[in-house]
Structures are given as structure tokens and as C-alpha cells.
Design a protein around this nucleic acid. Structure first.
Lengths: 192, 192
DNA sequence: CTCCATGGCTAACTGGCATTAGCCGTGATG
DNA sequence: CATCACGGCTAATGCCAGTTAGCCATGGAG
């Protein structure tokens, strides 16, 4: 009946892993079933459709990312500190949820309307949040950049790249990653 | 007979555009045919297969990118200048050939062996080139970074992001883009 | 004028995939 | 002990995609 049981969560996790490795179109319901030890058609006892799996993953991801961003910038008004925290949240999110972030970035085109538009709107909101942070910093005379838009793109792309190559079991801890990248970000905006 | 005629080039260009918009799996031979005014099956008079189209695009792209990189760093030994030129080449390539670069980054998993391994090897070579540049700069005391590997990933990701959002007809010229991004790169590595 | 390579077309083949239908064992519930 | 919801299965459906087969108009070459 497609309720949110433990089995459903297990299936969603398997789907996420497969979508990451094979892509949405490249993953079959049989693959997903196999990953949790059942046949493809049996999945429909737990899940509405393949598309629904993707929708859940994408919207959950964007919700969580926006949430993390809002929380990060909420408790200070100093532009430098706000940017530092936003980048920190951005980086940690992309490291900790690299599969979700990876799929979230790459499979937007596999989403069917109206979900595609909804996710794109969330993404735009997130981008604007970063751009505003840069603009504020420039206005306050703390940052020195030629284009706030370009700079925010650069900052966002830095984080997104992480989801493509970061590995939890690699030589780099999440903390080291976050420190390095916040440093990168502050250098990028030319903090004095 | 799959010779390299003008028609073949036209088809390849159409395929590139469609692969970018719909993805490799999401693009049908009928789509590609329609884009050049013929039916899907007629494509086989010019092209060996759909997979072959992808292979051509990917290998051409990596060849050109590696070439641009080697040319860029060949004519100076100053670490700062070498990095500046490498980033300049990187950025310009991703702006000028954004479709190729975009597909080249996203559709590696749609490549069939042995082409996938070949392209991945080229990509690794390219990454190593950047890492070496950073390492040299650090060794020469001109750069200040905690991890050459992380820094080179950041530099590469910066460029790759460009292929996702840059538009030739946008408000930003290729020159402006290149200047900004080389500035970003030098700030990132902490050039004095 | 004839011939044939070129490059189109439609029809057919093949295989894969998401999804649905319908069956059945199991185990908790009354 | 009977029942029935649950969650698995296999078989079937319908669709769609890549590719192949085979036909035909055209236009240049001899």
C-alpha cells in the first residue's frame, strides 16, 4: 500500500545507490528489486512507481539543503561569518549526502512535470541565497569580487563537485574538507 | 558507409545537442534523425551506431582538452604563470565547447568498454596535470594550500561547472569569464 | 542511354522495461 | 481453528527503442 515502512526506506536507499551508479534511465526495477532481495514487480507492494522513487529522493534532498542553508545563516548578520557558515553547510551536506546530492544534480531532467519545475524552483531559491550573501558582503565592503553572480556560481559548483568525488572512507575527513573549502570560499571572495 | 562527410558532422552536432538536453539514454535515434530532417533508420547510412556517436564525441573532447592543456603549460616554467594559463585554457574550453564538456562529464557511464576505461584514463591524466601544477607552485613557495589534491579538484570542478550554466549569448563574454576565473584560481591557491 | 552508388523510406525484428493481473504461503488476529 | 492482510512470485501486457532488410528515386559516370 505504499506506506512509509522500513522496507520502503530500504528500497529507497537501494534505488539511490543504483541511480547514482547507473543513472535513473539506466536502472531497472529489476535492479532495484535485486538489491533488496526481491523481484522487480514485488516492489509495487511498497512503492508507487519508479518515477515516484526519484521524486521522493529529489524533493527530500532539496528540502534538506534549503533547511541547512537557512539554519546556517540565521544566527549572525556578519557577512563573512554568514558566508563561512553557508559554505560549511553546503560542503558538509554534499559530503554527507553525496549520493542524494549527486542524483539531485544530474537527474533533474528525468523528473516529470510538475516535479521538475518544483525542484528547479527550489534550486533557484538556493542559488539566490548564495548570491545575496555575496552581494551583502560586497555592499559591506568586506568582499571584493567583480560579479556576485559569477562568484556565487563558483561557490556552488565547488560544493557540487564534492558529491562527485568525495568518499567517506577516503583519507579526508569531513571536518578537514569543510575547513579547506571554507578557506577556499573566503579566498575566492577576497576577504581582507 | 560511415565516412566523415559533412552530413556525418551535421548528425554528430545534432546528437551532441540532444545528448546534452535529454541525456544519452533519453535520446532516441528518431530524435537525432528528426533534428537533421530524416528518419531514424536513415542515420545508419552515415553512422555506425548510437554508441559510436557517443564514443566520437567523448574521445574528441578529451583529446582536445588534453591538447589545450599541454599547449598552455608548455611555454613557461613559472608556476604562477603556468597555473594561470592552464586555468585559462580550462575555462575557455569549457565555455567554448560547453556541450562537449557537459556530455563528456555526464555520460561516461553510458560508454561501453573499452572506451569508458580509455576516457577515464585520459581524464585521470588531465587531473594529474593540474595536481602537478599545484604541487610545483607549493614546492616553489609561491602557493599556499593544505592539500594539492583537494585544490586541484576544486580548480577542476570550478571549470566543469561552467559547462552547465554558461551561455554564449549571455551577458558574460568568454574573456570576462576567463579573467574572473583565473583570478579565482590564483586566489584559491593563495598566490602572494 | 544505361548503370549503379548514394541516401532516403517503410516495415519488420528483437529485446528490454515498467507496470498490471492474479496466484499463493505465512503469520498474526479474532 | 478460520480468516485475511501482507508481501512475495510468475505470467502477461503494452510500449518503445536500436537496428536490419529490402525497396526506390535521383543524379552523376561511362
Amino acid at each position: 500500500m505504499t506506506t512509509a515502512t522500513a522496507r520502503t526506506a530500504e528500497i529507497r536507499a537501494a534505488a539511490l545507490e543504483l541511480f547514482t551508479k547507473l543513472g535513473y534511465e539506466g536502472t531497472t526495477m529489476g535492479d532495484i528489486g535485486g538489491a533488496v532481495g526481491i523481484r522487480g514487480p514485488s516492489l509495487y507492494k511498497h512503492v508507487a512507481s519508479k518515477q515516484d522513487l526519484l521524486v521522493q529522493i529529489m524533493t527530500d534532498t532539496m528540502d534538506a539543503l534549503l533547511d541547512a542553508h537557512r539554519t546556517a545563516v540565521a544566527t549572525t548578520r556578519d557577512p563573512v561569518e554568514r558566508l563561512r557558515r553557508a559554505v560549511d553547510a553546503h560542503v558538509r551536506y554534499h559530503a554527507r549526502h553525496r549520493l542524494e546530492a549527486f542524483v539531485g544534480n544530474r537527474e533533474i531532467r528525468s523528473l516529470v512535470e510538475p516535479h521538475r519545475s518544483a525542484v528547479l524552483a527550489q534550486r533557484t531559491e538556493y542559488e539566490n541565497g548564495f548570491r545575496d550573501l555575496v552581494t551583502e558582503g560586497v555592499a559591506a565592503g568586506r568582499f571584493s569580487v567583480a560579479s556576485a553572480r559569477l562568484t556565487s556560481y563558483a561557490l556552488l559548483d565547488l560544493g557540487m563537485g564534492i558529491s562527485a568525488w568525495y568518499r567517506e572512507d577516503g583519507e579526508l575527513s569531513e571536518n578537514e574538507l569543510a575547513w579547506q573549502y571554507t578557506e577556499f570560499a573566503l579566498r575566492l571572495v577576497g576577504v581582507a
